[in-house]
Simulated assay, not measured.
Amino acid sequence: MTNPPSSLTSTEPVTLSENEAKQLAEELKQQLRQGQRLDGDTQAIERMVAGLGDKRGLLRLTFAESLGAVGSAAVPALCRAMCEHENVTVRRAAAKTLTLISDRSALPFLFRALLNDPDPVVQGSAVGAMAVVGADAVEGLLEILLDPKNTPMQTGLASWGLAFVGARAPEALKQAACSPHARIRTAAIAALGDQIQNLGDQDARRLLTDALNDGDEEVRAEASTLMGKLNESHWALPLLLPKLNDESPLVRKNTALSLMKLEDPSAIQALEMQSETEPDDTVKPILRLAINQLHQHD
């Protein structure tokens, strides 16, 4: 990922009175309804961006939709507002509006917002805008996972972003699932669900199967969790049952939960046997819960 730019070209800030914002919103709304092409010159865009700070939510929505209709021409102004505006409402709205446009040129600024903005809504909206860009965002999201200076919030959002990208970047995710870094493998495995369930990707299925025996417990735990989400008991059950004896309590816990989600009563016997010998007090109630739930499907 290229380093995010340190600054954006500044322009004279535009402000709108409440009446000006209302009038402009009405004009834009009418143009949108009539399918008219919106004016995309610099002054018009700056006026719409200024409207993103309005206290009235419906007006902000109109300005966001209008900027989305303008498209890529609005990206520089939106990036500047997202990264530099003092009003958090404007920063939030700008990030959300970039999601509507899905322009890869915004990626460096979206990463900057994620890493530097103190507001969690701005961070989350920035990741949402990255995710809709697709494959071009994957490398940067993976780098965020690896940097120990990033907060749990930032790395969690990056993982969510990868999961949202899903089938839009199949090759990038499959490559990440083979990364030497366990944190990246974990995030990539979590994002393979769409490829397996909706695209029938056999390579992704194989990667998930291999991840059940990964050397890192977090990867095995994530693979166990995904197995329970795919609703393929005939395939998942033989692979999951041995994980009830995994050395990691986290893996055993996730396995029990996945077996419960699969709703296959044939797992009851193995769960009962594990419950009798389970050494970890945090896993025992999960095993009992799974057994009780599966008896309802017996």
Rank of each mutant, 00 (worst) to 15 (best):
L8F: 13
E12P: 02
P13H: 04
N19H: 15
Q23W: 04
Q31T: 03
Q31C: 02
Q31V: 02
G35D: 09
Q36D: 13
Q36M: 13
G40N: 05
D41L: 06
A44I: 11
R47L: 08
M48W: 12
V49Y: 00
G51H: 10
L52V: 14
D54Y: 03
R56T: 07
R60S: 06
A64V: 15
A69P: 02
A69S: 04
G71Q: 04
A73L: 14
R80V: 11
R80D: 02
M82Q: 03
M82A: 04
V88M: 08
T89W: 02
A95W: 01
L98E: 12
T99F: 13
S102P: 09
D103Y: 00
R112A: 00
P120D: 14
V122S: 02
Q123G: 12
G124H: 13
S125C: 13
M130T: 09
M130F: 04
A131G: 11
A131Q: 07
A135K: 03
A137N: 06
G140F: 04
I144R: 07
N150R: 15
P152S: 13
Q154M: 05
S159R: 03
F164T: 09
V165Y: 06
E171Y: 09
Q175C: 09
A176E: 02
P180S: 03
P180Q: 12
A188G: 00
A191W: 05
L192I: 01
Q195V: 00
L199W: 00
L199G: 08
T209E: 14
N213E: 12
E217M: 10
E218M: 12
E222A: 12
L226W: 02
M227S: 10
N231G: 06
N231A: 14
S233E: 05
A236R: 04
L237W: 15
P238A: 03
E247D: 13
P249W: 11
P249I: 11
K253E: 14
A256T: 06
L257Q: 15
S258V: 03
L259A: 09
L262G: 03
S266P: 11
M273P: 00
Q274T: 14
P279W: 10
P279Y: 09
D281K: 04
D281V: 11
L289H: 11
Q293K: 14
Q293W: 10
D298Y: 06
